[in-house]
């Protein structure tokens, strides 16, 4: 699997340089803005606005200290973890059952459900905010975590269901049939047999749900009020007042947000590739 598909075992020096050169350039492009974020967070609070652009400027952890001790950042972080966590767990469960049903059962409306899922992603969020706000208000879910989770599910579930449907398609139906012969219900077959086999696909779905909820701004800003309920995106906006933005704090907070997400990423990135691959080359 690690062996290359197309490349020759030995490649010429020139080709090697070109290959690595391209990858290094791409890596630099990917990395520079993030590095710049880290460097900025290490500068004194007001040093970021300077026409004299420097990499280092009196490095200090003061921004981090301020954000962690003087603001509600820890609370926002916790709220975000909670909301993103709930979105992930619930979203993946719902998406998996939907994806499985669409993958396995022939029933009228299959195509329209697939379409429906896709179409929901085509309506601009800006137009949805006000009616959604009123709906949540009527359900008493404004400024409540379940309300925000519900809103995120509308974004995460369609894609995940779609993704998982594709994944379930690759799991042979003989497995389900064997389960049925052993007396399992269709749901039991799904739960006991198919789901465990779909772990890589579930990992991708979980990851996607998490990232969606972790980085969402518009719903969180509209639906949540007050430090106790703010998630990161609306919370961080407190660093931007009417006449200035505290970039020192913003960048420090951004680094602290990105690191956990990045760590999760690094941990699962292998699964990401294989999850999206549906494990076709396993031997």
């Amino acid at each position: 699997m690690a062996r290359s598909h197309t490349g020759e075992a030995r490649r010429g020096l020139g080709a090697s340089i070109a290959l690595h050169g391209t990858l290094v350039a791409a890596s630099a492009f990917a990395l520079i803005p993030l590095l710049w974020l880290v460097l900025t967070s290490l500068k004194p609070k007001d040093a970021w606005i300077s026409s004299d652009v420097r990499f280092f400027d009196d490095p200090t952890l003061a921004n981090y200290e301020y954000v962690l001790t003087e603001t509600s950042f820890p609370r926002w972080l916790l709220n975000s973890v909670l909301v993103a966590g709930l979105t992930t767990v619930i979203g993946v469960l719902i998406a998996a059952s939907t994806g499985y049903a669409i993958s396995r059962f022939r029933f009228t409306g299959l195509r329209s459900i697939l379409w429906l899922l896709l179409v929901t992603q085509m309506f601009p969020v800006a137009v949805l905010i006000v009616p959604l706000y009123n709906l949540l208000g009527r359900m008493g879910l404004l400024n409540q975590y379940p309300g925000l989770v519900l809103a995120y599910l509308t974004v995460a579930v369609p894609f995940c269901a779609w993704l998982l449907k594709g994944y379930f398609d690759t799991i042979p139906t003989e497995i389900d049939q064997a389960g049925q012969i052993d007396g399992l219900t269709p749901f039991g077959a799904f739960w006991r047999l198919v789901l465990p086999l779909a772990k890589p696909g579930l990992a991708v779905a979980a990851f996607y749900s998490f990232v969606t909820a972790w980085g969402e701004v518009a719903y969180a800003t509209a639906f949540m009020t007050g430090d106790e309920h703010y998630t990161l995106a609306p919370g961080l906006q407190q660093f931007v007042s009417q006449s200035r933005a505290e970039w020192g704090w913003l960048t420090a907070a951004a680094v602290m947000i990105t690191i956990p997400a990045g760590a999760v990423f690094l941990a699962v990135q292998r699964h990401l590739v294989s999850g999206l691959t549906a494990g076709a080359t396993k031997s």
């Binding site: 990395l31 990232v211 972790w214 997400a261 990045g262 990423f265």
Partner: peptide
Amino acid sequence: LILPWAAPAFVSTFI
């Protein structure tokens, strides 16, 4: 190369 996906989009855009 995967890292840009890990940073929340609103953070990256601001950067």
